[in-house]
Design a protein around this nucleic acid. Structure first.
Lengths: 141, 141
DNA sequence: TTGATATCATTCGTATACAAACGAATTGCC
DNA sequence: GGCAATTCGTTTGTATACGAATGATATCAA
């Protein structure tokens, strides 16, 4: 039924390709609404607001970034004064990352925008379809 | 019903975050099975096999890459002898990109692997759910 | 207690991604 | 024909991503 009659391989039907395109559209919507922060930077600030101070690697695992990637993101947020780092007295290997006052202010102002970004990204779907999509994506993520 | 009782913003429920995680899992499966080619490189070869010779920018728009990105991908494929470029007699601005014999051999050998990568990525879902997911993703892509 | 193992953060190298600016070539329009 | 707008490819700069290697520190086990 849904099988390809000619048995051929079509790039546009592969999950990897469609995921990449959906990501691109979301990124375009995001940067149109929040121009001075990238989605990874936003994710770091949002997670810090949710859970408070943590180590750099712990934050990375919470937002699905490896150690090398999260370091770059935190460095750039730090250069802008949105987060700050401190030492962990109990474990000298760790860097504790936390929001600055400016970072907290910014993320609180941006949350409504982020909600509208999610809304615009999902605008082509009904509420029921949104729920289905998130459920199925969650299972392959 | 599905509304968040506390009205809070949770990163893990946002479409952008879930898309990024699904992409990560797909990439991990891809590189475990096809270690010496990235998904964008594979996409370029697969599309060239589908449509034959095209200009660099045209190829980019077919596989959703901007001009700067596609240039890097083609450069690396060219350095490995998988694609070659020629001049367009009718339009001196254009570079015509095509598969070499080695490139054609490789992509034909890899297509079965790519099919199994798609299968493994979608393994947590039933056939019906796969169809639903691809349909909904296609609408927001 | 000490020695193997694991964890934390950093660094290096490679590969997407995309914006912006650029020169060369082509097209559209009068 | 000729000039403006467009298109093609390139280059530069910035920002993820991830593998691999490394040094410092913790932990665990014999």
């Amino acid at each position: 039924m849904t099988a390809d009659p000619d048995g051929g391989y079509h790039l546009h039907e592969q999950i990897g390709f469609v995921l990449r395109k959906a990501n691109q559209r979301h990124l375009a919507i995001f940067s149109a609404r929040i121009g001075d922060l990238t989605p990874p930077q936003f994710a770091a600030l949002a997670k810090l607001k949710e859970i408070g101070e943590t180590s750099q690697n712990q934050l990375g695992s919470l937002i699905a970034m490896d150690a090398a990637t999260v370091k770059g993101v935190i460095d750039r947020l730090r250069a802008r004064g949105l987060v700050e780092i401190g030492k962990d007295g109990a474990d000298k290997r760790r860097l504790l990352v936390s929001l600055t006052v400016e970072g907290r202010d910014l993320i609180e102002r941006l949350v409504p925008l982020a909600t509208s970004i999610t809304g615009e990204t999902l605008a082509p779907l009904t509420q029921r379809e949104v729920a289905t999509l998130l459920r199925l994506l969650g299972r392959i993520a």
